[in-house]
């Protein structure tokens, strides 16, 4: 059970939150080509290392925020409210 630092609630058990995966910039829906759109939908960097990802403080303040987590060690650093 890793600790996730919520900007409002402080470090919380990860089960109090929901991980929504690595941050992928959303293309402009009006102008994006289908292939750009599908890259956004499906392709992921999926690195074995540091990744910027979004969490939702589901059982707490209900804030979406991003942190950096190392997927090889589950080490967590940095936080930023989105």
């Amino acid at each position: 059970m890793i600790l996730v630092p919520c900007p409002n609630c402080g470090p919380r058990n990860s089960s109090d939150l929901r991980n929504t995966g690595e941050v992928v910039p959303r293309p402009d829906a009006a102008t994006a080509s289908l292939s750009e759109w599908r890259s956004y939908l499906y392709l992921r960097d999926n690195p074995a290392g540091w990744v910027t990802e979004t969490w939702y403080c589901r059982s707490g303040c209900r804030t979406y925020f991003t942190i950096e987590r190392n997927t090889a060690t589950n080490e967590v650093r940095g936080l930023e409210r989105t």
Binding site: R18, N19, A72, T73
Partner: peptide
């Protein structure tokens, strides 16, 4: 597991 990771040491939950 709900959290993507390459770590295979398992969780209590």
């Amino acid at each position: 597991d709900p959290i993507g990771t390459y770590r295979v040491n398992g969780t209590l939950e």
